[in-house]
């Protein structure tokens, strides 16, 4: 005999009433959570669903440079300041240890962000509203953002990318 034998005939025991209630409730909640995620895609406005394109450092840098040249309006601390037209494609590059360029956007307009890294993984963490996405090398992560409030936002890196990781801060200004 084992040291702690199961009750004899355990596989015939009827499930107690309260356990049945609980399992039923738990099942309903689980299905509810499943439905929530899907319904949020239909009715919600914040979904990290997206397109990912395959790219490479060379190609992404070329696109980035062309984008910056087209919309550049100035410089700040050695970062290009760029003011793209609404409803256009916006390229943001992550590289140790910078987020480039500084962007000026308009409230209520949509922008198709293309996020990619040219070296390691980085974390795109938009503050202070606290939205967080991952950025990979060789993958162009396309997210369409619509800023809902004017103000100054920062992009901090929240995936470890080397010893200067904590210096990696970018800036996005949203105008009325």
């Amino acid at each position: 005999m084992s040291a702690i034998p199961p009750k004899e005939g355990w596989y015939y025991t009827k499930i107690a009433k309260e356990e049945k209630i609980w399992i039923g409730l738990a099942l309903v909640v689980c299905l509810g959570l499943f439905a929530t995620m899907i319904l949020w895609h239909v009715y919600g406005k914040q979904n990290p669903s997206f397109t990912t394109y395959k790219t490479n450092v060379h190609e992404f840098n070329a696109l980035y440079d062309a984008f910056v040249e087209k919309y550049k309006v100035g410089e700040e601390h050695g970062f290009a300041v760029v003011k793209p037209d609404p409803n256009t494609d916006v390229f943001m590059r992550a590289q140790i240890w910078r987020w480039e360029p500084v962007l000026i956007l308009k409230k209520g307009e949509s922008y198709r962000f293309h996020l990619a890294s040219t070296d390691f993984l980085h974390g795109f963490s938009l503050q202070p509203i606290n939205m967080n996405f991952m950025v990979y090398p060789n993958h162009d992560y396309v997210l369409t953002f619509t800023p809902t409030e004017a103000g100054e936002y920062k992009v901090i890196c929240n995936e470890f990318c080397g010893v200067g990781h904590h210096l990696m801060v970018g800036k996005i200004v949203v105008e009325e």
């Binding site: 397109t51 990912t52 394109y53 395959k54 790219t55 190609e59 070329a62 696109l63 062309a66 984008f67 087209k70 494609d89 390229f91 993958h139 162009d140």
Partner: peptide, 15 residues
């Protein structure tokens, strides 16, 4: 099976 960046998108950016 990720797609590459579409050519017309690249064209519109790179001119």
């Amino acid at each position: 099976n990720l797609p590459p960046i579409p050519e017309d998108l690249k064209k519109s950016i790179l001119g």
